[in-house]
Simulated assay, not measured.
Amino acid sequence: MESITLEVTQGVYKTAKEAREAGRVPIVYYGKGIENANFSADYQEFRRAYKKGGKSTIINFIDENKQEFPVLIHEVQYHPVTDEFLHIDVMAVNMDKAIHTEIPLVFFGEAPAIKDLGGVLTHNKDVIAVKCLPKDLVHEIQVDISPLIDFHSSITVGDIKAPQGIEILDVAGINVIGVSAPRAEEEAVVAPAPAEGEEGEKPAEGEADEKKEEK
């Protein structure tokens, strides 16, 4: 299990706004049977930890008293304009009890249906629901796409090989990834040229005689 350490402070700032103004990210810590607590972490330190671990890696919070809190990031709120972190929710983790979470899927390899047939990769799932002990949690699960040999091939949840100690909870028959046929190029429709003698409308009966008389 990969582990990440993040230094946090508890109860130093009265409001989330005050923490953000000090260059920190406000964090709410909660879990079953424990009292909620407010932490904050240095913005850049949290950014690096989240980039490395995401929501599928145990992060060990260490507060100013050197007390450790193993957590999983549950929810991240972003500023609607700047996309900066606004608020983080983390769940307390009991290292002796199984947890339910999601692990990202990372696809690798070369699909013959794309290389040889010009198909287009279609993703249906990018994460997979799992159950495991915290010590068995992995940051990602890799999926080889080389079995996609034609447009009828697909990789389902049941085809994914989970690392030891991890139980996949999603239904085995769910389609994860496949290849669709390329769209045929639309041919421009050219209107046929008018046949000889059809360039203009024929004069109504009687009009031709009237024009002759005018001459």
Rank of each mutant, 00 (worst) to 15 (best):
S56M: 10
G33I: 09
E18H: 06
F69D: 05
V130G: 06
L117K: 15
F85M: 04
A184M: 10
F69Y: 14
L72R: 07
E68G: 00
N38V: 13
I59E: 07
V190Q: 01
H123Q: 12
R20E: 10
K125T: 02
V190G: 00
V130F: 12
A22R: 00
R24F: 04
S40R: 09
P112R: 04
E185K: 15
S56Q: 02
D170G: 09
E207M: 06
H100Y: 13
T15G: 06
L148A: 06
A181K: 15
I141P: 10
E7R: 13
E18P: 06
P104V: 11
H152Y: 11
P112C: 05
L137E: 05
V25L: 14
I27M: 07
E205C: 06
K212D: 12
M1D: 05
I114L: 05
E201T: 09
G206M: 05
L105G: 07
Q10H: 01
S154G: 08
K135G: 09
Y50V: 11
E196C: 01
N94F: 05
V25D: 03
E45I: 02
A208L: 13
N65K: 15
L133W: 04
I149D: 07
A162V: 03
C132W: 01
G33V: 10
V120Y: 00
D170R: 07
P134N: 02
V76T: 04
K215G: 11
Q77F: 06
E84L: 01
I168H: 09
P134C: 06
S3F: 11
A129I: 05
K52G: 04
F108R: 10
Y30D: 07
D150M: 09
N175T: 15
C132T: 10
A98Y: 01
S146V: 08
Y43V: 02
E196H: 00
D150E: 09
V179F: 00
A204D: 13
E84V: 01
G11R: 15
S153E: 03
G54N: 07
L148W: 11
V106F: 09
